[in-house]
């Protein structure tokens, strides 16, 4: 090794691979969908409530998938509960300084809110006959409280994933404090795209659909900015991307950010273009996560 960019070069890659890439994808979608849904619920138009409902419906399955992925990624899934209870004393564990610990709790708490909102959405769409469940959504006071707390938890879940990577000693991951920001912001963008795609697919014509498009474009712009900041903050470590991973990152930027922005700018009101752009954002988001998770793996002392 001629020159070492960072002391992180001397560490071991964890086994985190495709399971984690998909976890980041689905976890991000869950958090982002909930975030958008609850935001619309809180401050949006009444006519956009079905979009919000869609968001709650998307969040739960995504959350379930991501939970299973996390579980399976443990070498000892039978001991997943060790994350919450000290196995030899049965006392609860909450280590605020360990992202894996607070993240696990965060997912649990977020799941609770997501579930409540999900029940409300079900009740509203009359799939559920529990009348009280409808009050779990705004505009009821309880619903507002749930939505506000749920938004906070969603933002937390979307952001902690990147913090988990930062609080390691791996090259790239721990060489910038911005990956959490990047993944969090990107989670919102891919979620908006997913909701857009569903809306377009179902032919929904609420004003909120346009808002989603606009929101997505702004967030993509923000994502790009954060990515530039990531690269700048990496300094010489950024040379890890002078590789196939870097090329793939470029693909992610082009497919998932530049081209969709350009398409939306050129034909802002075309439903097809909007849907195509949404698909590309999702693909780009997936590639971005793949690059972030895998780039460091080949770097071993």
């Amino acid at each position: 090794m001629s020159e070492i960019a960072s002391s992180t070069w001397f560490t071991t890659a964890p086994h985190w691979g495709w399971l984690i890439v998909f976890y980041y994808l689905f976890g991000g979608l869950a958090a982002g969908s909930y975030f958008i849904a609850a935001l619309i619920d809180l401050i949006g138009r009444r006519e956009d409530r079905p979009i919000a409902r869609m968001g709650y419906f998307v969040a739960i399955p995504c959350l379930m998938v991501s939970g299973v992925l996390l579980l399976v990624d443990l070498y000892r899934p039978d001991r997943f509960w060790h994350l919450f209870l000290q196995s030899n004393t049965m006392r609860p564990i909450f280590q605020y300084w360990a992202p894996m610990s607070i993240g696990s709790w965060g997912i649990i708490v977020f799941s609770l809110f997501a579930l409540l909102s999900f029940l409300a959405a079900l009740a509203e769409s009359r799939h559920l006959s529990w009348g009280w469940a409808g009050h779990l959504r705004p505009p009821s006071i309880v619903g507002r409280v749930i939505a506000v707390l749920g938004i906070l938890m969603a933002m937390y879940v979307a952001g902690y994933a990147g913090v988990l990577l930062a609080v390691t000693n791996r090259p790239l991951w721990s060489d910038t404090p911005l990956l959490g920001m990047l993944l969090g912001v990107s989670a919102m963008s891919i979620s908006a795209s997913l909701l857009l795609l569903i809306a377009r697919w179902r032919g929904l014509k609420f004003p909120g659909v346009r808002s989603l498009d606009r929101f997505d474009s702004w967030v993509i712009g923000l994502t790009l900015l954060v990515l530039v900041a990531v690269i700048v903050s990496l300094g010489s470590v950024a040379r890890v991307w002078l590789s196939l991973w870097g090329a793939l990152l470029l693909v992610a930027v082009l497919v998932g950010m530049i081209v969709p922005l350009f398409m939306r700018w050129r034909s802002a009101r075309s439903a097809q273009t909007s849907a195509l752009a949404a698909v590309m954002v999702l693909i780009g988001g997936f590639i971005l996560r793949t690059v972030i998770v895998f780039t460091q793996q080949g770097i071993q002392p």
């Binding site: 975030f35 958008i36 935001l39 619309i40 401050i43 949006g44 138009r45 956009d48 300084w97 992202p99 938004i151 933002m155 937390y156 979307a158 952001g159 902690y160 990147g162 913090v163 930062a166 609080v167 721990s174 404090p177 911005l178 990956l179 959490g180 920001m181 990047l182 969090g184 912001v185 919102m188 909120g208 808002s211 989603l212 606009r214 929101f215 702004w218 967030v219 923000l222 954060v226």
Partner: peptide, 24 residues
């Protein structure tokens, strides 16, 4: 990295929330 990364994540969330408020 815990505190800075958390701060930046929060900042990101805040910015997205602002865009959200602005959008929706």
């Amino acid at each position: 990295n815990l505190v800075p990364a958390s701060m930046f994540s929060a900042l990101g969330a805040l910015l997205v929330a602002l865009i959200g408020v602005f959008s929706f």
